[in-house]
Write a protein that binds this DNA or RNA. Structure first.
Lengths: 254, 254
DNA sequence: TTACAGGTTCGTGATTCCTAAACACATGGT
DNA sequence: ACCATGTGTTTAGGAATCACGAACCTGTAA
């Protein structure tokens, strides 16, 4: 993973740099993009007009914007994976029961991707939504997945993405993380005590396939003040474990 | 529109051909793609490995699949457009009230793109979802938009996309369509009487900006049997018109 | 009118991508 | 055990493509 292609097609890299820049800048002009990406104007122009011709980009009031073709692709990649379809109703019922924020995370290229988030009535308002990517080592969801990956893979991922600290509580030592992963496998539940966001606490469980490989993870996240004692240590883990179980069953028999 | 770029970047075209093929085939191997697209294996390989390196494609059990990076882009293009955010609650309330299928369409590159669909309890089960593209001339939603575009633009679109018939009821004569558009502007409501799908009838209204340019359209679709008389000719049009009005107001004052 | 900023076009040289052919690796049949 | 067949992957070289600077439009502000 993260390994380089031998004969990379440079234009692909440039293309997606432009696409991401259009996303980041929320639409942009030729010159703006050219300076942003440090490319000649005329190159950017050629890319943009090709993208427009292929209908992935739209020109509106003098600016280029990403087009709705991506809408279709986005929906496809989400619904392709059965996990989303199967898990969604469970997430909803957990959200209804706990009133907190419920998340579904999947691993891809050594990072975590939120595939689905459902907000309960009291859910914290943390700005991060579907498609958002996070590192695995400092989130409950991520650790739940790491705990069930082969150790070589875990090392590979840590080598590639490092172990940056997001808050003072983040784990930054590899051995400490390994011990934490052992604990998670033993207790079958992962915690995130303000490791990624100050004041935010979360309980997570993995979703495993029949061979015990992790295909995703499920969590409830809330403010530290509401995540304590019995609720944190017993009720939520049980609720999540049973949901994960239902999902696993539905996935294997479908 | 549809006009060709002068110095098109060929690799972009190939790239997105591959992306679309991966979507169509729901994941594929190198050889499969190579024959499908009539390209040398090694070229396809170079593209795929670059796309993988950039994390837009994932290799799983020997097949290449589109990755979750597209999820993020999809969500972005949808939410960028204020129309979606503003219209969604209205669609939901119409769906609750009518129990039918409610749609929001936007024009892009001379085609219609479904941006949002909400199913009421009795909604027909027509397989077409968010991101789906349709031609404008044979749908109620499309005609509602065409009616408010400048005539030159209408001709441009028809020149480019033609007027293929989807059912025996589709309008295939340009003059007839123009008369229909006149009628729509006059009555401020568009109908689709089995023009796109047999047995399916739909009522649509445009959503206009302050300069009366169409930014989208709104419809209720149901089986012909339930779309008759008073409901079809008065109740639904009024419901839609008032929803469109609310949306227009919210859009201009935000 | 001029100046300016942005978009668009053009032409050229060098890089990059395309391609065929060979290699590696797995699978299954005989 | 062997070969046949089907993958994915690597390699190397020539040809086409893209990268790039400069010139050209087109609109807007001064």
């Amino acid at each position: 993973m993260g390994k380089k292609a031998n004969n990379p097609v440079k234009s692909i890299v440039t293309t997606f740099n432009i696409v991401q820049a259009l996303r980041r800048l929320d639409g942009a002009g030729v010159t703006e993009l050219a300076t942003e990406l440090d490319l000649p104007k005329s190159s950017v122009y050629n890319y943009l007009s090709t993208l427009e011709q292929e209908e992935y980009v739209v020109k509106r009031d003098g600016k280029y914007h990403l087009g709705l073709r991506f809408l279709d692709l986005g929906r496809y990649v989400r619904e392709r994976d059965e996990l989303y379809e199967t898990a969604r109703p469970e997430l909803e019922s957990i959200a209804a029961e706990t009133d907190e924020l419920v998340n579904l995370l999947v691993e891809e290229h050594g990072q975590g991707v939120y595939v689905c988030r459902v907000r309960g009535d009291q859910a914290v308002n943390v700005a991060a939504s579907t498609g958002h990517r996070v590192s695995l080592h400092n989130t409950g969801l991520g650790k739940a997945i790491l705990a069930y990956l082969p150790e070589e893979r875990v090392d590979e991922i840590l080598d590639e993405h490092g172990m940056e600290a997001a808050t003072p509580h983040s784990i930054t030592d590899r051995e400490e993380l390994k011990r934490e992963l052992d604990r998670i496998r033993e207790e079958e539940v992962a915690y995130d005590r303000e490791e990624r966001i100050d004041g935010l606490c979360c309980v997570a469980v993995p979703i495993l396939d029949p061979d015990d490989r992790p295909i995703g993870s499920l969590s409830v996240a809330g403010p530290t003040s509401r995540m304590k004692r019995d609720r944190l240590e017993t009720r939520l883990p049980e609720l999540l474990a049973s949901a994960a179980n239902v999902i696993e069953l539905n996935l294997t028999y479908s």
